[in-house]
Design a protein around this nucleic acid. Structure first.
Lengths: 153, 153
DNA sequence: GTGAATAGTTAAAGAGTTTAACTAATAGTA
DNA sequence: TACTATTAGTTAAACTCTTTAACTATTCAC
């Protein structure tokens, strides 16, 4: 690729990814209201979709330290949204799961996010948005590999 | 579009945008090191590219309250990276600008982010990444309009 | 069985955020 | 002109998220 074209693409990417993140984050936050922060929503979603979820697993998935997860889980547990269960075989391990209340709230917020995403995805031509997401997924893979290489060094 | 296809696209989008944000954010943070947080980098970049930047302008651009900007600017000013200048005609207004030190640091971090983005952008075919960014920009526009409508209600 | 590794928590500190109350300056208007 | 409302920015309190470092409890490995 031409140097000049690359420079232009970099600038456009940096600028647009910043803008979309800000705008999308702000719209999601509106949807969440007082119920959950965005991070809490994602954490609860992860627990919902994972069987026998642990703090360590969350820390790895969200790329933060385990103590950051402890803090978030404490807040959610205090509100009765999450339950902790010790593994009987390995008593170091604590499994995280959603309470009834947690499941209900997750459904509610999940639905709102879904509708929000739907409302902008459907403004695109099917081919265009499909190609977009496919490339986006390739990008996710590339970033994962870069991360691995970095750690491997 | 078919309902089922839409649902699938939504799920893929939510999942991939989350993943890319986490991964890219984490890689950028590594590049920044101890010098600046990501938010500070963006704030400094905005000030660099804007003539006569004010707190209100930043608050609007970053979609946060003005007091959040004051806090960030205070930290940067304490480190001698940013200078404040009162407007002589309208003494309520405070213009923000980078000090020499701030400009140098911004060049340094800017360069690092540039190289990082270059390293993954160049792994794509030119047509594919150009189409991707173009759609991404359309998405930014759509989100901006949604935000406006929301405010207008 | 003792030392090393693992899972998770706690505590302290710092960054970013919001809301609400505040200062200071300007604009509008009666 | 004087009063009121608006605007720009700050401050303070409270909260979330994050990191680092030290800690407990448990399990693993030799």
């Amino acid at each position: 690729m031409d140097k000049k074209i690359i420079q232009e693409l970099i600038d456009r990417y940096v600028s647009v990814s910043f803008e979309v993140n800000k705008k999308a984050g702000s719209l999601i936050k509106c949807q969440m209201g007082e119920d959950l922060t965005i991070d809490q929503h994602y954490i609860i979603g992860y627990i919902q979709n994972s069987k026998e979820c642990t703090s360590s697993e969350l820390a790895e998935a969200f790329e933060v330290n385990k103590s950051a997860i402890t803090a978030i889980i404490n807040r959610l547990a205090d509100r009765g949204l999450i339950e902790r269960t010790r593994d009987e075989n390995d008593r170091r391990v604590v499994y995280l799961s959603l309470s009834e209340k947690g499941i209900d709230l997750h459904h509610k917020t999940q639905e709102k996010v879904h509708l929000l995403v739907e409302s902008f995805i459907t403004q695109f031509d099917e081919t265009e948005i499909t190609n977009f997401i496919t490339t986006y997924e390739k990008l996710a893979l590339i970033l994962t590999n870069m991360k691995k290489e970095e750690v491997g060094e």
